[in-house]
Write a protein that binds this DNA or RNA. Structure first.
Length: 557
RNA sequence: GGUCCCAUCGUCUAACGGUUAGGACACUAGAUUCUCAAUCUAGCAAUACGAGUUCGAUUCUCGUUGGGAUCACCA
């Protein structure tokens, strides 16, 4: 390709602007002066308004590796696809990273500020940088313009399929790879849109080898695809492939943590780096978190549409303690984490020594909600009372104002409610997420009880006649003494049960099931449901003591 | 379909070529003088299949089967 033609192409790409040369740009991004062994890691989400839980997993690994090697963990926003970009998504990412305490050392922060000398950290603001590298490739004869329309491209793929050939833009199927200068000039003059493509020198028959940090030795066919490097739209932004190589080179990242879905395009990235004279990166492909499809079928990627829990916003909205979610993810990363966690419940999770060797498993783990909940219950149960109360009230204040107002009426009362069975070595574990609060504590407040819990009573007592319920309550109340201690209270429960036709002894019930309406447990259930609207609650005596005599009498009569 | 990755209880996983195949979550049962939760105890439960190498294979090799990823001007 002659120089004049190259310059015409360059003019088109830069829209006639003068842009800095590659060498000038490189001078702006000097080597970092970091201690030996320090790793620069980078987490690079796209601003789609949706952050996958697996992305937090990868971000955490980046953070840990950087911290453990005294390196730097960079957040870079990959917004080269303007069509997919969602307003406010960049900021959302920064805020979510903060919520999970995976705060980047460089890049956009939750408060909107930007830290670091190797920016801009948003790809759409780096357009000229990519162009400079693209032009460098053009000069070296390793890139060329392609004017093929999407119809032509699709037709080629169809043709390939019918001939049972590998689909793609390569070799003889690379329509514009070996066009004459005249053809290119003509297309350019005609103002046809074009993308700048990479001119691959690989062969699909030859093989290449590389070592993945996590997956080990790879032996794969070389890349021979002439992929687009610069898109044809007015922004002239790069595709991921170019952007990755250029940015990670300039930001001086040597190790690339990214989802496993990138593994197949790694040979391309290695060839691209080579063509640019850039030392190849070390790649570490992390497992993708999956889920078992509830509609049958096998394992699949967690999807935004079908699985709300795939979006980290879900965890925030349900108000899980995010430390527990992190703990779960850490456990997926390193199986020895669980042991460490149990021994260091109060420690900072950052003190855990993450090992890349133990991360080597490359099967996509399945998200286990039950296990996350288990972590979450432990997490909440081990909070001290003050922190617990604060968290409950903060949640109610933000999400349930009727409950919040009810809770604020009498602080002492609320303190007693929130303290039930939380002390001692074996606290209750009813609350896995803060959005469980209304269900767990709402019935203590008369207004909330009336509106949200009374309607549940009928269903909870299904199968028991109204008469039986009434008799049970009457019998219980007739001997009820609010000032009695727990033993006496329980004696009353038993005698009321007996009087109402319930068996006190399980054996009696078993040998003569027809003689009784049920066991003591069945009787207690009636009293419990009438008092709380729920079949599962903490100790009923304690509940009655807290809500007070008047409330007990009114709910049971 | 091509290419690549992967294969241990339901799930996440542990096991220098020699273990009774271990743990955690889930599940089941019993105990804790009421329910539920918690706790304790017990239990259920796995090396995908077939060859080969070896005194010996979950571990190494090959094949089969199965699952996953990818094949865009998306990242």
């Amino acid at each position: 390709m002659n120089e004049n033609l190259q310059q015409s192409i360059a003019k088109q790409l830069t829209n006639n602007r003068q842009i800095a040369s590659r060498s000038k740009i490189e001078a702006r991004y000097p080597e970092r002066h970091l201690p030996d062994g320090a790793e620069v890691t980078r987490f690079c989400p796209s601003p789609t308004g949706f952050v996958h839980i697996g992305a937090i997993f990868t971000a955490m690994i980046c953070q840990y590796v950087a911290r453990q090697t005294n390196g730097v963990y960079v957040l870079r926003i990959e917004d080269t696809d303007k069509k997919r970009e969602v307003e406010g998504a960049k900021e959302l990412i920064a805020q979510q990273l903060k919520a999970f305490e995976v705060i980047p050392d460089e890049g956009l922060q939750a408060d909107g500020s930007v830290i670091g000398e190797y920016g801009p950290y948003v790809q759409s603001e780096r357009g000229d940088i990519y162009l400079a590298f693209a032009l460098d490739l053009l000069e070296k004869g390793r890139a060329y313009p392609c004017f093929a329309t999407s119809e032509e491209l699709q037709a080629a793929v169809k043709d390939q399929q019918s001939k049972k050939l590998r689909p793609g833009y390569y070799g003889e199927w690379a329509l514009w790879r070996d066009r004459s200068d005249d053809d290119v000039q003509a297309a350019l003059d005609a103002g046809k849109p074009f993308v700048l493509r990479f001119k691959s020198e690989g062969s699909h028959i030859k093989r290449m080898e590389f070592d993945d940090v996590l997956k080990g030795h790879m032996n794969v066919p070389e890349n021979d695809l002439d992929v687009p490097l610069i898109k044809s739209d007015e922004y002239r932004l790069p595709t991921y492939h170019l952007a990755h190589v250029v940015d990670d080179y300039l930001m001086r990242a040597a190790i690339i943590f990214r989802g496993e879905e990138w593994l197949p395009s790694t040979p391309l990235h290695i060839e691209l780096a080579e063509a640019l004279g850039i030392k190849p990166f070390r790649y570490a492909h992390t497992p993708v978190i999956s889920i078992v499809d509830p509609n049958g079928g096998g394992k699949r990627k967690l999807s935004k549409r079908k699985d709300p829990e795939a979006d980290v916003a879900y965890w925030q909205e349900a108000a899980y303690p995010l430390r527990a979610v992190k703990a779960y993810l850490l456990g997926l990363a390193n199986s020895n984490f669980e042991e460490w966690y149990k021994a260091n419940l109060d420690s900072d999770l950052g003190d855990f020594e993450l090992s890349l060797d133990k991360l080597a498993s490359s099967r996509s783990p399945l998200l286990d909600m039950k296990k996350v909940e288990d972590y979450a219950k432990d997490e909440i149960a081990s909070m001290d009372q003050g922190a617990f109360n604060k968290a409950v009230l903060a949640w109610a204040n933000a999400h349930d104002s009727p409950l919040f107002e009810a809770m604020m009426v009498d602080g002492d009362f609320t303190n007693r409610v929130l303290s039930i069975e939380r002390d001692g070595d074996q606290p209750r574990k009813d609350v896995a997420k803060w959005s469980d609060v209304p269900e767990q504590f709402g019935y203590f407040y008369d207004e909330i009880f009336a509106t949200r819990f009374v309607p549940l009573i009928t269903e909870a007592l299904e199968g028991i006649s109204d008469v039986d319920v009434q008799t049970a309550c009457q019998n219980f109340l007739s001997g009820y003494d609010h000032s009695a201690d727990k033993d006496a209270w329980f004696e009353n429960m038993k005698s009321a049960a007996e009087k109402s036709g319930y068996a006190l002894d399980r054996k009696d019930l078993k040998s003569n099931p027809d003689k009784f309406k049920g066991g003591l447990a069945d009787f207690a259930k009636i009293i419990r449901v009438k008092t709380t609207g729920k079949t599962r609650t903490p100790d009923l005596y304690t509940i009655m003591q807290i809500v007070g005599e008047e409330t007990v009498l009114s709910r049971l009569s």
